[in-house]
Design a protein around this nucleic acid. Structure first.
Lengths: 346, 346
DNA sequence: ATGAAAGCGCTAACAC
DNA sequence: GTGTTAGCGCTTTCAT
């Protein structure tokens, strides 16, 4: 419990050298010509005593805490957030850094206080993360440190950021459908005015256009981005003559609803209807029957990018320019895509 | 960026007092009779300069970092983990503490190193969290600090811990079925040898017994705890004469599979078949059609408990005895439970 | 090759 | 009431 830890002073005493020498040896300070005998002895004693430097003291002295703040706005905490943190944390450990966690609500005032708390602890920098791809306006206080945006872009100020390639992901999704011969492809869109909505819709339209198909507005239905919304949207699209043979869904939750609609209408997937989702929430995509072909979000990659970029920023004290980054969203093939009905085979 | 922060010395200089007085005022040290004039002035200057104490320096001096380590073993990062962290983080903020995050793999060696990293940063204590209710053997090193177990019990040593009441949750689930008049209730069990499997099975059997129903072994089928497993188990249970009128599923993912089986067999939920899940993974439970009645895990509560308990431990330096805690799992009623077929109403 | 000493920013015992 | 001083554990400049 509170038993007092071994300090460098004790190591020095036991080794019969000054703390200076111990520090030199332990930190392998370059340019010091310390005989191997001393080196060995000091190391042995330190090891023996189980000495570990006090990082608070080091931090105070070095003006660097080897700690980075991770502030995010999960309210409901999507399953996504986890992977992002894992990515960030693993990358951080490559630098010997640890993540200091904060999660703000939506309250800007609270957020400022939280950043302050992080700053008070002398974090080397801050990762300002959004729960999902968003436009954000970080508190001005964030300028007091080095920071990068994760899954978010800033309105106004020019923070470094990483976001998923929504358009590219949608192109990939539609491509998977086109390559199977689908021409009549519907899109379940989202009612929320967020970058993902626009980006995925854009990718959908572009994908069709490039294939020489005029995107038809009545093939797009926007609803709430959950299973219920997906069900309704899919119903609207499918329960009519000349229904689409494939559906590209805004996300996996909507795709889940689309499955339900297909079931309700007696449509088999993928024989009668092909479906592609977005997000790759495995609990859904791997749980649906048949498995859902979908587009994965680069959560882990964004987490890693954030740390690496932040470290460059810190190292150069902000002088090095960092480019924003748009990370690819790869297709995860499962079993919900087939050729259109009546195509017999391919 | 790297602009140097205001120190207490500057505040003292500007206010025309010693840093001692400034410290006294700012920390509102009791028993000091400082005139209001001084008090006001110092506070005004501090405010004016935007002074904030350096928590590293404070920590070094006070031997307390106001930081608690949160180490967990998410590999795949369940969506659960998030809520636990949110609970812990919010509770921590009540004490002015922050969470220092680490997530280990399964590697015990790595885990030890991670605990060390936390200790090096002088965390006041550690929350050792499991991704799901587990029996664990924390590294011996954990004894070097104050610690509590979250969603886990230790084999051997006697750590304070909080786990969900698996048995109670199962009793509640079965109760919800019994109260609707079901007598022929199946259980989709899990093949993994973990506390949840045994606890939920136990609760299922006890619930039936108490209602005067002899638990029949052929009403229990164990499969992998995912949708596919649930589908298979449900098929085994339902695709036969005298099939159960209700299914209690090990978790929501298996319940998802049970829904699929019901669909395949042309069974309507809840008219022909009632289903109760466990975990309340909203993405599933709220996404299924009809909504899944299920039992929620007390993730947030466990997170809060961990922090509060840890704080008591720290305050008393481990002298205060803390009781392990088994937290209730409340039923979340949606629409997957009805009266058995042929009961016309109730 | 090794060590004394200063100082990172802060708190607190003790003087005045 | 207020200030002086020591020291938390460490790194690093500058002597020797």
């Amino acid at each position: 419990m509170g038993q007092t830890r071994v300090t460098i002073r004790e190591v020095a005493a036991r080794a019969g050298f000054s703390i200076t020498t111990v520090s030199h040896v332990l930190n392998e300070v370059p340019g010091k010509r310390i005989p191997d005998s001393t080196r060995m002895l000091v190391k042995a004693v330190a090891d023996d005593l189980g000495y570990r430097p006090n990082r608070l003291a080091q931090g105070l002295r070095l003006q660097r805490s080897d700690t980075i703040g991770f502030i995010s706005d999960w309210i409901a905490t999507s399953p996504h957030a986890g992977q992002t943190i894992v990515g960030a944390q693993q990358a951080a450990s490559e630098y010997g850094s640890l993540l200091l966690l904060m999660n703000s609500g939506t309250d800007a005032d609270l957020e400022t206080r939280e950043i302050r708390a992080l700053l008070d602890r002398q974090v080397d920098g801050i990762i300002y993360a959004a729960e999902y791809h968003r436009l954000v306006t970080p508190p001005a206080l964030l300028h007091d440190t080095h920071a990068v945006l994760l899954d978010a872009r800033a309105t106004g100020s020019d923070w470094a950021y990483a976001v998923p390639d929504e358009v590219g992901g949608a192109l990939t999704a539609v491509g998977a459908l086109l390559e199977q011969g689908h021409r009549n492809i519907g899109h379940l869109s989202n009612v929320d005015d967020i970058p993902a909505t626009a980006g995925r819709l854009d990718g959908y339209r572009t994908g069709l256009s490039r294939a020489g198909i005029a995107p038809h507005d009545d093939l797009v239905v926007a609803e709430e981005s959950d299973a219920t919304g997906g069900y309704r949207a899919a119903m609207a699209l499918l329960d009519r003559p000349n229904r689409p043979t494939a559906l590209f869904c805004f996300n996996d939750r909507m795709a889940m609803g689309a499955y339900q609609a297909a079931t309700a209408l007696g449509l088999a997937i993928p024989q009668d209807l092909s479906i592609v989702g977005f997000d790759d929430q495995e609990i859904i995509s791997a749980g649906l029957r048949p498995g859902l072909t979908t587009v994965a979000l680069p959560h882990r990659e964004m987490g890693q990018w954030a740390v690496h970029t932040l470290m460059r920023l810190i190292k150069s004290d902000g002088r090095e320019a960092v480019e924003p980054v748009v990370l690819p969203c790869p297709l995860v093939r499962r079993a919900s895509v087939g050729s259109p009905p009546g195509t017999c085979g391919r």
